[in-house]
Each structure stands twice: as C-alpha cells, then as structure tokens.
Nucleic acid binder design. Sequence first.
DNA 1: TTGAAAGCGCTAACAT
DNA 2: ATGTTAGCGCTTTCAA
Lengths: 339, 339
Amino acid sequence: MSSTYKKDAHKKMNISDIAKALELSTTTISRAISGKGRIGEATRERVWAYIRENDYRPNIIAKSLAQSKTFNIGVVLPADQNLTETPFFQKCLLGITEMAASNDYDVVVTTTTETDITLLQRIVENHKVDGVVLTRTLVNDFPAKYLEEKNIPFVAIGTTDDEKVIQIDNNHRSGCKELTTLLLNSGMQSIGLLCGDQNHVVNQERYQGYIEAFRDKELSIKEELIFSNVTNKAFVEKAVESLMEDHVECILCMDDLICSRAIYKLMEDHVSIPNQVKVASFYNSAFLESHNPQITALDFDVKEVGAVAAKNLMELISGKEVQKKTLLDYSIILKASTK
Amino acid sequence: MSSTYKKDAHKKMNISDIAKALELSTTTISRAISGKGRIGEATRERVWAYIRENDYRPNIIAKSLAQSKTFNIGVVLPADQNLTETPFFQKCLLGITEMAASNDYDVVVTTTTETDITLLQRIVENHKVDGVVLTRTLVNDFPAKYLEEKNIPFVAIGTTDDEKVIQIDNNHRSGCKELTTLLLNSGMQSIGLLCGDQNHVVNQERYQGYIEAFRDKELSIKEELIFSNVTNKAFVEKAVESLMEDHVECILCMDDLICSRAIYKLMEDHVSIPNQVKVASFYNSAFLESHNPQITALDFDVKEVGAVAAKNLMELISGKEVQKKTLLDYSIILKASTK
DNA sequence: TTGAAAGCGCTAACAT
DNA sequence: ATGTTAGCGCTTTCAA
C-alpha cells in the first residue's frame, strides 16, 4: 500500500483578487489588513467583511520578502544524548512556542552540540529566522559567539559572563544558596554535593550558590564532599559511596536525574532517607514526585522562562530596548526527605 | 542595563549582483546554483567560484515565493503537561530535525492539545510549512482530520484506523505481545497491567499486544488485573495495591513514568522486586536505568522513528510514492526485575 | 548554452 | 482617503 499527494487544483486567493472584487487598489487592501496608514472606516470594514467571508489568508512568504523579515524565531536545542532525557528543554520550547504564536511569530527549531554548530549556521545563513533563542549557556559558548559575530539578534536562557548577551534565567544561584542555607540552619554541618556537567553554566551557578551559603555562615567547605561532572550512573554511585563513608548528613543533587540515581543507590545500600541521610535536589520533576519520602527540591517555572525569553527576543527584533538580564524566581519545596 | 539591536548596514549580496560581476544574466546564475536547465560547465564553475569566494547565500524566502514552497516541515508536539515529562517527543524531534536538515528542510514546531488545534491551523493557514509530522495519534484524531480536510501532506508517528493516513510507528503491539509471551512462558500466570491514557492509540496497541499474548496461549484474561488510564500517582498506587492483594506475579507498566511510580509504591510497601513481584515496562528510559534491580523493558529507537517520518513526509511533498505504513523494530531488554 | 522578461504576493514611497 | 508604481530576490517560460 502506498500513497501520493496531489496538489489542490484551485488557486489561492490573493490581495489583488480582493482588490478587483471590491474595485479597490491592492494598497488599500494591504492597508486594511495591516491597519497601517490612513484608510476610511467604511472601506476598511468592507475589506474585512470580504476577507472573512472568503476565508482569505495572506501569504506570509510574500510579506516576508517585501519586508525582509521571516516572522520566525530560531530555537536552539542541545542534541546531546543525556539532555534529551530531561524535560527542561521541552517545557521551555512550549513556553517559547506559545509566546511566539501570540505575537504572530513561529518557531524554527534546530540543534547544536557543544562543538558542532553547523545546524544553527544553516538556519541563520539561509535567512530562516529573525532572531534566535539559545536554550542554555556554555562556559565556552560557541553558539553565542557565532551569533554575536554574525550580528544576529539573540537571547540566551541561562547566565553568562559575556555582558553583551541578553540573558533570561531562573535565579539558580540564589535558589541553591537559599536551600543550602536552610539545611545548614537546621543544624547540618556536612552536606555533600553532586554536580552535573561543569561546562554548563547553570551547574556553575548552582555550585556557587552552595559555596556562598557556606561562606555566609563562615563555615569551611570540605572539598572532598563535592563531586563534579557526576554525569553517569557509575559516577553517582561512587560519589554516594564516598559520601556515606564520610558520614555526610545530607546529599544535594544538582538535577533530578542525578538525584534519581543517588536515591536508587541509597536504597540499594539500604540507607534510609531521611533517617540515615537526607536528600535534596536542585531541580524538581515528575520523576522525583513518586518517591517516598518525597524529595525536597527547588522548583522553577520553566515554561515561563521560555515565554520571557521569546518575548524579549521579539522586542529586540522589533528594535525595542530589552533588559540585559532577567532573573526569574524559584520556590523551595520542602518535603520529608530533609526532615 | 539594556540593549538594542542595530541592523547591519551593508546590504546582502543577491543573484543580480553576481550576474553583474560576472557579466551574465540572473537566469544563468540561478541555473548554475540549482543545477537545473542546460548550462556550460565553464560558466557553471565560474559562478560557483564566485559564490564560494564571496560566501553568497541565496535568499530562501524569495525562492519560496517563486516556487510556492517553504522548505519547512511542521512538527506538532503535544502540549499536555504530563507529556512534557517524557523524553519521547524530544528525541523524535531530534531525529526529524536532523533528517530534515540533511534534505535542506527546516522544522517549524507547534503544539496542540487533544481538543485545541488552533496553533496547528496557524502554521498551516499562514503557509508556513509544506507538510506536517504529527508526533502521536489519537483515538479521535482532530489534528489528522483537519489536515486531511485541508489536503495538506502529512504523516503520523503512531498507528491509526484511518487508512488514508501515512503512519510510521514502532511495532508496539508486537513488542508488547512478545514481552508478555516471554513472561507467560517463564511460568507466570497472573500478570497485572497498568495502562496509560486510552485516548492515545499507542496505549491501545500495547494493550492489544498484552491481550494477544494471552489469547495465543489460550489463557483467560482477568479483567480485574488490567487498569486503564492510570495517569497519576494516586491511580498507580491504588492499582498496585489492588494487584498485590490479588497476588499477581508480575506488574507490566505501559510507560516508564507509570513504572517509576509503581516501583516507588512497591518499595514504600516493602515489596521486594523480583522476589515478591516482578516488574517490567513497555518503555525504557534513563529514569529506569538506575533502579536496582534493573527493569526489564521494551526499547525503541525513537530518534529513528522521527527520522523516517521526516523522510517519508519529504518524499510525499515531492510527489513520490510513500509506503502507507512503516513499522520499525524494537528490542526487549531482559533484566533482573523479571528473573 | 544563454538572456529577457514576466511573475510569485505583498509592502511602501510617492503621488493624487 | 485611495491609487500608482516600483521593488523584495528568485524561478521559469519563451525566445535567441
């Protein structure tokens, strides 16, 4: 069984069909549609009536060509395997898409890895987008550098040293600091930290939050309790073992995948949460929700960060002033795992 | 701190700039680029040399207008909250994006819910895409019906009754049947089933696979062991309790979120896997990987299914014949949870 | 093998 | 308030 697609025979209506039908000029139709320029209320209504009646849709491509604008924003997703496992980017994309649509923009997605930006170059150099949203920031940020160099409007979801970049981020640093402080205030002294990929700025921020919490209380930081780049199951297991040997009171995990792995490891070793060790995560997702006891975590409105990023980008594109850095809030969800 | 974007002053090169520089006509340049139509090898090479040297990029928008093609494919993602938690769609999207790019297409994403297809209508009626990939099928498939009615080329990832729809799917039914059969062969008799949303065809397929396994062995199906629409934590917990009261030997979960919830519930109740009850999932993801014992599951190459869908759609768009139904393979990963 | 010219559908100066 | 006209950058028929 197979199938072929046959094009519709009947041609689409265009602006000059309307002009003819209504005995007006195409300019007038254009003005009636866009609302720009002077036009009589009567003719305006007449045009709209015709449009509604005949279900006319303007050809965006032609508009694009005339205005040298695509009305598309590009969204760059990471192609790395282990990031497709996290819901962050998908939620972000949802927020971006909705905000874009409500401003009459559409979303073209593409992917990059930390070193390969050819697919980003594709959409940019083919003039497919008016601007770009980067959904994460890197310590050595190739995509950002490329867009800067090409002078393409873009915003980044995340934080970066590069002051020229417009950034939208949840306040990870502050959230992690507050959560850590809360734990320290409850009398704990020794808190282990399992960090994610250190080339991702977000993980650096989370790390700084942890450090600052200790600094503010003038507590010494024990390097042996901090594990960086705990990016796979084996690393998590080794780190957890080591932390338990050091008799930490609490294990902080930078994201929910690390946390989920840590919890399983603890269960396997018959370590009871929170009796023998407490656990908290810097990122909350459905995969932690089912655990008993429930896990204390930071919660971010990821869809919102996407929406704000899209909004900022579209304003940037339209020449408006845009805030250099937007920090969104977080909430701390205290649950039984740290009681 | 704020920032404004300033447009680059220097105008982009176009086809007639090249024509002038090389003292040729725009037609010739166009032919040299596209490779269509007769053209002398010498001039052809001369044009390409110039293009390479000056890093010229054709304006796709103009090409689109001239050819009435966008070179975009639309991808429809579900906007439902609990689906953003699963990695399926993101992986799919990755496959689609890569395949599209390698055929000089780009990907415009949009979202729908089970009842609201306005954002899909947007990209279709604004002529933003040449065709559409639906990333799931529904029992009552509004998006598919809409696209059919509008006569837009589209393919669906998933299975559907509608014979006119071009479908690409992993062989869920067969996979689930094989896994269930395997369990039955190992001597189990009573196997519980926790089903996902029954409006998603994929869950119907999985259900059928389970049923067929029993039928083939002429075993009776106990309705009380099958729970449908187990779409939240509370439902999973109730179902698991009920199954344990019925002393099932194994619990089959339709996806990894259900499975993860079921496992936590079992742990909470101090039920040992696989000693007291065995567990298997119809979908494998990183969130199950950490569990000890590891969980038996079906594994699908999701990126591949996306890639094939994109390929089929692009062939459909270009008027080629396309297979009505493509079924991709699966693998069964047997782990300790069913030993 | 190459070129002239019309056209894709819309916008925007510049008239009137 | 409305119309004329010249593009936007590329493709494509038709002619040379």
